[in-house]
């Protein structure tokens, strides 16, 4: 498959974000919590993107914040995918009551807007990273369940799945060896999209004060800290916002490219 220009840009930017997150301590010019200048200093040679509401270097906080944002989003997407696709496949393979119960639970969860569920849950549960990741992951898994179930419904009626059942294979073999490899391409493309939604979700929660808690920094939290600066014409709040947008767009470009390879769910399987 040919690499398109937009996909190339997407891959380049995504790689940049990921690498700077991994090597944050090496790249960031200042520590996370050090006050290095005045309140909301404009960008300068010393502080490339300026300083924030209490004089910390925004570039350094962006780099460290990227670590948290990307990690939380990635971890919750992985949870969403493991849960969603396993139960989606199970519902498709077993059908009947299993399918009914799982699908109705998912319907129930999807009927309530997920930010509201998340807000309620997070205000009750202790606020730390594992809880945050789990809540986002479980809420996102409903969408993955729908997709995985729909894709594997098509595959579960194939003769080779019937042949495996007639051979006496167990459900685990059928799900992981017969269905998963054939459902992988649409799921991988969906993973990119779900990752972006997780980034937006964690940023929203942090902006509302229920996400990542200080002293840790994340992009949504940084927008919240600096939002008052917008009134005085300070650019500080725009930097993390731009980072969120750039990450979302670049991952989206990659996901689009993967998706275009699998436009026809059946055609992509041959090679």
């Amino acid at each position: 498959m040919k690499l398109t220009l937009s996909a190339g840009i997407g891959i380049l930017l995504t790689a940049m974000f990921v690498l700077s997150a991994i090597f944050a301590p090496l790249i960031a010019p200042y520590p996370l919590d050090l006050t290095v200048g005045g309140v909301w200093d404009a960008p300068s040679a010393k502080n490339w993107l300026g300083t924030d509401t209490i004089g910390r270097d925004i570039l350094s906080r962006l780099i460290y914040g990227g670590q948290i944002t990307i990690f939380v989003a990635l971890a919750s997407s992985v949870i969403a995918f493991s849960l969603g696709s396993f139960f989606g496949f199970l519902a498709a393979v077993r059908g009947g009551w299993t399918d009914q119960i799982l699908s109705r639970i998912v319907d129930l969860m999807m009927a309530i807007p997920s930010p509201i569920v998340a807000l309620v849950l997070l205000s009750v549960l202790p606020l730390n990273l594992p809880v945050l990741i789990l809540v986002i992951g479980v809420l996102d898994s409903t969408r993955v369940f729908r997709l995985a179930r729909a894709v594997s419904m098509d595959i579960a009626v194939m003769d080779y799945v019937e042949a495996a059942k007639l051979r006496g294979e167990g459900q685990i073999w059928v799900i992981f060896r017969e269905i998963l490899p054939n459902a992988l391409s649409p799921l991988v493309a969906e993973f990119g999209l779900r990752f972006i939604f997780a980034v937006l979700f964690i940023s929203t929660l942090s902006f509302l004060g229920l996400g990542v808690q200080p002293p840790l920094a994340d992009w949504g939290g940084m927008v919240k800290e600096n939002k008052d600066g917008l009134i005085y014409g300070k650019s500080a709040a725009l930097m993390p916002a731009a980072a969120i947008a750039a990450l979302a767009i670049s991952v989206n470009l990659v996901a689009d490219w993967v998706l275009s390879r699998t436009t026809s769910l059946k055609g992509g399987r041959g090679a």
Binding site: A163, L166, G168, P181, N182
Partner: peptide, 25 residues
């Protein structure tokens, strides 16, 4: 309810060989 030997000794071949084989194997 069938035993593994029952399954083994009774095999099936399908009309469409295309869909009877997992394309990823």
């Amino acid at each position: 309810g069938r035993k593994r030997d029952d399954l083994r000794e009774l095999q099936m071949i399908y009309q469409m060989a295309d869909t009877a084989m997992n394309p990823r194997q």
